[in-house]
């Protein structure tokens, strides 16, 4: 007993007090900023492994970007990744960062469905479906609930059954073999419910986009409520995204 108390004491304070203002250590690759400098755009567009960069004007689609950092390495004056981890949005177009714009990627409160604030504002239980994911976004979702990030303090938790859930969180590029299971899981969640896509793979297929092993028809059928980019998405991106979607007030 005393030993246990000693262990607890030795941990000190682990939780991140403010999950929306804390700084991430080191050289995290978060929201990119694109300058207006003139560069060889064909070369820039061509180097991206997932066609996330478009030319004229130069823009990066965070829903496709794998955050490999290659563009910033080759064109350091053109593209710079900031440590801003708040890059989730409920609108797909908002994930596209354009040159010359240093604009935050945010949830647009106007287009959030009404019932989301009302029903899920204080408590949100989610069922996670790994639809062909590589395990990295799943690890980060897990980490969101550890004692440091402690998403549970906001009433957001993962549950073991879709029957207990208010929505589903999809990771992975949605493979053919998981398409039916995903549908069954979604159907088992009671209304009203939300769909959250976590990670580049889920949002666009990422590096697997266009593969014949995928079946993304699920996403054509239902509106997506939140896109959380990243490869994998950082726990702080996940937490802030979910909070921005479900709460009106600042935490």
């Amino acid at each position: 007993m005393l030993d246990n108390i000693k262990i607890v004491y030795h941990q000190g304070k682990q939780y991140i007090r403010n999950t929306s203002t804390t700084k991430v250590p080191g050289i995290f690759r978060g929201r990119p900023v694109i300058s207006t400098e003139k560069v060889n755009e064909t070369e820039l567009v061509g180097l991206c492994p997932v066609d996330a960069i478009s030319a004229n004007p130069v823009s990066i689609d965070l829903g496709k970007c794998t955050f490999c950092g290659e563009c910033a390495k080759q064109f350091p004056n053109k593209i710079r990744f900031t440590t801003d981890y708040k890059i989730a949005s409920n609108e797909r177009e908002r994930l596209i960062v354009k040159e010359g714009e240093d604009r935050l990627v945010e949830v647009n409160p106007e287009t959030v469905r009404n019932e989301i604030h009302r029903v899920f504002g204080n408590s949100l239980k989610l069922r996670q479906v790994s639809a062909g994911g590589d395990g990295s976004c799943e690890w980060e979702l897990n980490a969101s609930n550890n004692v440091q990030f402690d998403m549970g303090r906001y009433g957001i938790e993962f549950v073991a059954s879709p029957r207990h859930a208010d929505g589903i969180v999809i990771t992975g590029p949605i493979t053919e073999n998981m398409a039916e299971a995903l549908q069954i899981c979604y159907d088992a969640v009671p209304e009203p419910k939300i769909i959250v896509l976590v990670g580049t793979d889920a949002i666009s297929g990422g590096i697997h986009a266009g593969s014949s092993a995928l079946n993304r028809s699920f996403l054509d059928k239902y509106p997506v409520d939140l896109y959380i980019p990243g490869n994998p998405a950082h726990p702080l991106t996940i937490i802030n995204g979910l909070l921005d979607l479900t709460r009106k007030r600042e935490i």
Binding site: I7, Q14, V24, G26, I27, C68, G69, V147, Q148
Partner: peptide
């Protein structure tokens, strides 16, 4: 619970270091 929380949080400084080094907690890139 104690082991779960303590060991779970001990993984964080290791992977956060990987982020300090290469910009990604799971060493992508």
């Amino acid at each position: 619970q104690l082991g779960n929380s303590v060991l779970g949080r001990l993984r964080t400084p290791l992977i956060n270091f990987m982020q300090e080094w290469g910009g990604n907690r799971l060493s992508k890139g």
